[in-house]
Simulated assay, not measured.
Amino acid sequence: MTSPYFSLFLTGEPFRLFSPSHLITLIMVLCLVVLTYLFRKKLQAPANRFATRYVLAGILLLSEVCYQLWHVYTESWTAAYTLPLQLCSVTLLLSAIMLMTRSYGLYEITFFAGIGGAMQALLTPELFYPFPHFRFVHFFVAHAGIVLACLYMTWVEGYRPTVRSIWKTMGFLNLLLFIALFVNNATGGNYLFVSRKPDNPSLIDFLGPYPWYIVSLEVVALALFFLLYMPFIRGQQQTKKVGRDFSV
């Protein structure tokens, strides 16, 4: 008999947006973010950097492996829904590689697409299983891990995004969009939600009918990316000014 914590079928109430378990989980994620910032200097020690990067990468990869195994275990694996082609699945894998390789090129993409996508997912999850089901735990561990990976590279490794990074990310997302459309056509899936809106309430509900909400999503993504970039503007302006001063 399948454990209720791993069962494919719900026997009780489904996940509710902003339920006590959802709010407590969001507070826990926020605490982890704050702790990463407060202990950023301690984490900069060489041994701590290595351990933190690989532990975070291991958690991200393990979460994806466990997710795929759960679908196999519950006999629900299907190319239409479980390929790692949702935005957060893609940025999760890229974040793990970024942590292990310290790739700045991947950081440029994961900072905007990862944080932007994971934040939206944490606030309005496309989730049906409540706490303490495996899928609830997996969902929040995976998405929180993406955010923490990007913030770690920013606060501990000292990486910084640029305006050019925003346009690289937009180009990457549009390439991914065409791949998702092709896969959706072939499998009947809805990767990246570009074939129809998600079933659960989400921010997409406010962006118009299909297919026009895809254009709205592009505008919202661009605005969100510039918003995420704003904390770095002053520092980069000061860097340019110092460079000009030294060149005089």
Rank of each mutant, 00 (worst) to 15 (best):
L61A: 08
L62N: 08
L62K: 02
E64V: 12
C66I: 07
L69T: 00
L69Q: 00
W70D: 00
W70Q: 07
H71N: 12
Y73I: 09
Y73P: 10
T74S: 10
T74M: 03
E75D: 15
E75A: 14
W77N: 00
T78Q: 15
A79F: 12
A80V: 10
Y81G: 15
T82E: 13
L83K: 12
P84S: 07
L85I: 13
Q86I: 00
Q86G: 08
L87W: 08
C88H: 09
S89A: 13
V90A: 03
T91C: 03
L92V: 09
L93E: 09
L94D: 05
L94R: 00
L94T: 05
S95W: 06
S95L: 04
S95D: 05
A96L: 09
A96Y: 10
A96D: 06
I97G: 03
M98Y: 12
M98A: 15
L99M: 04
L99V: 01
M100Y: 07
T101S: 15
R102I: 10
R102Q: 15
S103H: 15
Y104G: 06
L106M: 10
Y107K: 11
E108Q: 14
F111Y: 14
F111C: 07
F112T: 01
A113H: 01
G114K: 07
I115T: 05
A118N: 02
Q120K: 08
